[in-house]
């Protein structure tokens, strides 16, 4: 409880810069439309194909034309909100914490997976035949992060490294690079393009279902705490009625037959209400690696 209040106050203070960004927009009338951003959680084309049925459904239910904009970088979400082109986005846990802190975006709901989980965690993995057993044996190797603005693909592995005494990962490894997507981080380690990788468990498990080599040839060295699954958050100055409509449409999907079909193809059982307090683990990791969310430079080097 105490931890929750602390998070709320931190996030509350961080809202202030975002207020300045509020602008007049047209969200009523027949020509109203919404632009929703997608983070490159996986192959960006697959990402669009996965989210298109969901946003089509929302368009129909809310009565607003919804377009998708896929981004090649997690951090672009922040930039796009800042440049006022995005109305909402499906945020990863860390990008939401950043966006909320910097811009004041408001989270609405996130999917609950078919197994009942609504969170994910980060994995740090290597190939079984790489001989890498711990952080010490990683020295001088190649590490594949996902993006500087991801919890599972950056925040968690850096925290892990720091916990094991690595203060500057850039010099500890022979090569540090950002794959941009979780699946590529996994596939790069699998295909020996990198020695160490970090990614979210949901993508890891999804790939493992179609490629048995992943579970046979990779080994997980550590996993992070659970953080909320990618959630839909909207800009703070979005029309309140529209916010309400979007939230209602998402929460009621599991009660409608057409909604259930889309949810099933999406890989979710339902959408559940999500609040800022669900992101405490992210804040915790940020603290652990001395990261100031308000000033964090999320762009990859």
């Amino acid at each position: 409880m105490l931890r929750g209040c602390l998070l709320a106050s931190i996030l509350g203070l961080a809202l202030l810069p975002g207020l300045a960004q509020s602008q007049e927009r047209k969200e009523t009338g027949s020509d109203k439309s919404l632009l929703i951003g997608l983070i490159p959680e996986q192959n960006i084309f697959k990402q669009i194909e996965r989210y298109t049925p969901l946003t089509d459904y929302l368009s129909k239910k809310v009565g607003v034309k919804i377009r998708l904009k896929v981004l090649t970088r997690y951090g672009n979400i922040i930039d796009n909100f800042a440049s006022s082109s995005l109305d909402a986005a499906f945020f990863g846990s860390f990008t939401y914490a950043l966006a909320h802190t910097k811009l004041g975006v408001e989270v609405l709901a996130r999917p609950e997976a078919l197994d009942g989980s609504s969170t994910y965690h980060g994995l740090l993995f290597v190939r079984k035949d790489s001989g890498i057993k711990n952080v010490k044996s990683m020295k001088g190797k190649r590490i594949a992060f996902v993006d500087k603005a991801t919890t599972a693909g950056f925040l968690f592995p850096v925290a892990h490294l720091m916990r094991h005494g690595v203060t500057d990962y850039k010099t500890y490894f022979k090569e540090v690079y950002f794959t941009g997507t979780h699946d590529h981080a996994i596939l790069d380690v699998l295909n020996k393009r990198a020695d160490v990788g970090a990614a979210k468990n949901t993508v890891f498990e999804r790939l493992a279902q179609t490629d048995t080599r992943i579970s046979q040839e990779l080994v997980v060295l550590d996993k992070s705490a659970n953080v909320p699954e990618n959630a839909l958050a909207v800009r703070r100055d979005l029309d309140t009625a529209l916010k309400r409509l979007l939230l209602d449409a998402l929460l009621s999907m599991s009660n409608r037959s057409d909604g259930q079909t889309i949810l099933l193809n999406f890989g979710a059982k339902r959408f559940i209400l999500t609040a800022d307090r669900d992101y405490w683990a992210v804040v915790q990791y940020a603290r652990e690696i001395n990261l100031d969310l308000a000033k964090y430079d999320y762009m990859n080097e």
Partner: peptide, 11 residues
Amino acid sequence: ALSRVLTIRAN
């Protein structure tokens, strides 16, 4: 391959 080219940040 294209997705990878568009998203990767590396040397």
